[in-house]
Design a protein around this nucleic acid. Structure first.
Length: 560
RNA sequence: GCACCGUUAGCUCAACUGGAUAGAGCAUUGGUCUACGGAACCAAAGGCUAGGGAUUCGAAUUCCUUACGGUGCACCA
């Protein structure tokens, strides 16, 4: 039940629609005032009465019922308290019935949403800079699916470019099969780094030649490239498995090689292409942007060319409702440019392309630099976190059966949660201290809350799942109930703003309220009727915390 | 130089999108149920929301401006 809408339907203000009123309804700063509030200031002009008088008049008109238990007017606000027993019954009933579907919806039914995220580069290991796009995109993928959309996860592989010519050149000079097989992606990366440090003019020339050979289908060059690609994908798949990240397509840059010419033809046909300093560009001066480069002066295509081709291909293939690009804000201009080019080409769907921009990751002593070896590899961060989780479990709960499995959930959860807890636009300074902190606003805190709840439920050994007619929740209980009730709205907001952090914060908020309840109210020792209610509340909280963390890709152990 | 983003407690961040007394965590100090898991709970202290102007009944939130920081601006992706 939508309480805002219900309340709005009872309020009659001349010339204002029910929807408008519903959207004006806010939550009071503290629950002594009420559960919902309508500020009456904006009606003052139209009604030619003071807000305080309006609120008082409205308060007189509205009768209480089995939903609204109290109406009051304070300082121009119309405050509502809702029937606690009714809300508690309704919410707990719904969670019990919907279970892991609680919070989901069918608002997205029939709509496809493409999400381009993670987009690994072939031959480059994952460092913490890749974490944001991967877990943000993955969370959005899960959230949109949860809301009934058909989400399509796309890993737009970075598998095209002169760097692969460099890599082959480096391999031919310094590498060998055995070393690469054993060393995997890091061995490949070392070769690439060495090329950048040591290559002379001759090798640079050779690299360009190798790249040309890949393009022209040369067998040896392509076999090497495919081998590097295979090793890369095997390596990243292990990380994706641990992070619970999935894709429906791995169509990367190379996939669009033969799809760019039609784009160039179309641009030329529509008179958008212009020559400038030997290159082919789309002039974006009228829109206050630098030109978008389509072809280099040597005729080669560019980043934007492929992205335009990819967008057209995705529209044709998936007929998306929206297409998201989860890419750092560094590339803001690039997205604005090629979105504009598509618009100029007459693609009315260009408005459905969204750059979901997020902040950058740096190290405490400055920006990361692969060449200087100033990098933090993602697999190292994950291992350290899992190791620490294992150590803590060993200390606090040495007799647990499946410690390694639990440590994996806790450690990996901390890595994901740390990347999703803040607004995505904020820059992050990576520090092990922060990631390894297991107290306060962390996934570990939420998981711990779940373990407590599980433990209580286990000890309860059965209870009456039917709620008594009349519940009189305490303040602590009611705070939990209200928070449980708001989950579906939080999921919608998170999708609307492309902000998984809303869900991460919600999970901490719910856990805090539950812990307060847990501390203040005895569950197992409570009198029979109350005990059943509290157990149901505990079970519902556990369910919703699992749903929330699940949307972020974080598992919940029942003991830890 | 131009454009975009950011600036809130000692630190890291919130603030339901313009609403009531700006809230959490960490760190500091002091406390807590003879426990259903102390990875918890409570409390104290900590704020001219970077500065200035404007709009509004009402601004951390919108607009203008200044400062500081980040990012980007033609053949890399």
């Amino acid at each position: 039940m939508d309480y805002k809408k219900y309340i709005a339907s009872k309020i009659n203000v001349e010339g204002v629609s029910v929807e408008e009123i519903a959207s004006s309804i806010a939550l009071p700063p503290n629950s002594q005032m009420g559960d919902y509030a309508l500020p009456c200031f904006k009606f003052a002009k139209a009604l030619r009465k003071s807000p305080a008088v309006i609120a008082q008049d409205l308060a007189k008109e509205i009768s209480t019922d089995d939903v609204i238990s109290e109406v009051s007017a304070i300082n121009g606000y119309l405050n509502f308290k809702i029937n606690k027993s009714g809300l508690a019954r309704e919410v707990l009933g719904r969670i019990a019935q919907q279970g892991e579907k609680y919070g989901s919806s069918d608002v997205g039914a029939g709509r496809t949403i493409c999400i381009d995220y993670s987009s690994v580069n072939i031959a480059k290991p994952f460092h913490i800079g890749h974490l944001s796009t991967t877990v943000l995109g993955s969370a959005l993928y899960k959230i949109f699916n949860f809301l009934g959309y058909n989400a399509v996860g796309i890993n737009h592989l970075g598998d095209y470019g002169t760097q692969f010519g460099k890599l082959i050149s480096a391999y031919k000079h310094w590498g060998n099969r055995e070393e690469v097989e054993n060393g995997g992606i890091h061995a490949i990366n070392d070769l690439y780094v060495r090329f950048n440090n040591e290559a002379d003019e001759a090798m640079e020339k050779e690299a360009r030649e190798y790249f040309r050979l890949i393009e022209n289908g040369d067998k040896e060059a392509n076999d090497l490239f495919e081998w590097f690609k295979k090793l890369t994908l095997e390596y990243v798949q292990k990380i994706y498995d641990r992070l619970d990240v999935h894709f429906d397509s791995y169509a990367g840059e190379r996939f669009y090689t033969d799809k760019m010419q039609p784009v160039i033809d179309e641009l030329r046909e529509k008179g958008l292409l212009k020559e400038s300093n030997g290159a082919q560009i789309v002039d974006l001066e009228p829109y206050g942007m630098p030109p978008c480069l389509i072809l280099r002066s040597d005729g080669a295509s560019l980043y934007a060319t492929r992205d335009i081709a990819a967008a057209i291909y995705r529209k044709k293939t998936y007929d998306f409702y929206k297409c998201l690009y989860v890419v750092a804000y560094q590339q803001n201009l690039h997205f604005r440019q090629f979105f504009k080019v598509l618009e100029l080409m007459g693609k009315e769907w260009a408005k459905d392309l969204v750059h979901v921009a997020y902040g950058m990751v740096s190290l405490e002593d400055g920006a990361m630099s692969t060449r200087k070896g100033k990098v933090v590899w993602l697999e190292d961060v994950i291992s350290k976190c899992v190791e620490k989780a294992y150590a803590v479990i060993n200390e606090k709960n040495p007799d647990l059966a499946n410690k390694a499995e639990i440590a994996e959930k806790v450690g990996v959860g901390a890595v994901i949660f740390g990347a999703l807890y803040n607004n995505k636009i904020k820059d992050i300074t990576f520090s092990y201290d922060k990631v390894l902190s297991f107290e306060g606003e962390t996934s570990v805190y939420v998981q711990y809350t779940c373990a407590r709840a599980s433990s209580v439920l286990e000890k309860a050994e059965g209870y009456d799942a039917a709620l008594p007619e009349e519940l009189n929740p305490t303040d602590e209980e009611f705070e939990v109930i209200k928070t449980l009730a708001s989950f579906p709205e939080i999921v919608l907001d998170a999708a609307d703003k492309y902000e998984p952090s809303y869900i991460a914060r919600y999970s901490v908020d719910l856990a805090q309220k539950f812990n307060k309840f847990y501390f203040d109210c005895k569950i197992l020792a409570a009198e029979p009727g109350v005990k059943d209610f509290r157990l149901l509340l505990t079970k519902a909280t556990l369910r919703v915390l699992e749903n929330a963390l699940g949307l972020l890709g974080i598992g919940v152990p029942d003991k830890m």
